[in-house]
Simulated scan of single mutants.
Amino acid sequence: MTKRNKIIYWVATLWLALGMVSTGIVQLIKMKEEVAMFTHLGYPIYLLTILAIWKFLGVIAVLVPKFPLLKEWAYAGFFFAMSGAIFSHIAVGDGTKEFFGPTLLLILTMISWYFRPADRKIISVNFNK
């Protein structure tokens, strides 16, 4: 892995972790604005706690060395949560401002996943040789 790619990976991953932890905290403490947004989107409030816990666990999975399969699941979870947030805002007719955050986190998820080091990837075995 080149030094450039390592820097891209860690910058994207640390910003992703910060974004997921900060939004997870807002969801866990059920800030008034977050509750209002979830109500506006038509989701039950208990989903805030579930998403927050998943975000915290996903950040741990992505940052801790080893466990490449768990990392894949965490990245997939981040991708599904953020793309779901974007489409939810679009579905209710929200403007660009409302889905900027999820879009940024989605992009950081893809960058972090793409530039992750080899020891954080699942190694596939081709048995057809």
Rank of each mutant, 00 (worst) to 15 (best):
V64G: 09
A76S: 07
V11P: 06
N128M: 08
S124M: 12
V92E: 13
M82K: 02
M110W: 10
T23S: 09
F78E: 08
M37S: 12
L51Y: 04
Y9I: 02
K32Q: 14
M82G: 05
Y46A: 06
A76K: 08
W113R: 08
L63C: 00
S124P: 07
H40L: 04
V21R: 00
A52F: 04
A76L: 14
K121D: 04
N126P: 05
K55F: 08
K97G: 10
A76M: 08
P102A: 05
V21F: 07
N128S: 12
V21G: 05
W113F: 14
A52W: 00
T49R: 09
G101H: 08
G42L: 13
A81I: 11
L63P: 01
T103D: 02
T2S: 09
P102H: 09
F38K: 01
F56R: 00
S22W: 08
Y75S: 01
I8H: 11
L51N: 07
A91G: 03
D94W: 12
I8G: 08
T49G: 15
P68N: 08
M110A: 14
I90S: 14
I90M: 14
K55L: 08
M37N: 05
I45F: 03
G77Y: 07
I107P: 00
I45C: 02
L48W: 10
L108Q: 00
K129I: 05
H40W: 06
P102K: 01
Y43H: 10
F80L: 15
F100A: 10
T49D: 15
T2N: 13
S22D: 12
S124C: 07
P117I: 01
T103N: 03
P117C: 00
K66D: 12
A85N: 04
A61C: 15
K6G: 01
E72D: 15
R4Y: 15
I90T: 09
H40D: 09
A52I: 02
D119S: 13
I86R: 11
K121Y: 04
K30T: 05
F79H: 01
V21Y: 02
Y114L: 12
T2Q: 06
K97C: 01
S124R: 04
T39E: 12
G58Q: 13
L14F: 09
P65H: 13
V59E: 10
Q27Y: 03
Q27R: 13
K66A: 14
Q27I: 01
Y75P: 07
A81K: 01
I111R: 03
G93V: 07
L63K: 00
A52M: 00
S22N: 13
K30W: 09
I50D: 00
R116P: 01
F100E: 06
V35M: 11
P44L: 05
L16H: 09
T13V: 06
A118T: 07
A52P: 02
A61S: 15
M82Q: 14
A74V: 03
A36D: 09
V11M: 14
W15M: 14
W73P: 02
A36V: 04
W113N: 01
V125Y: 05
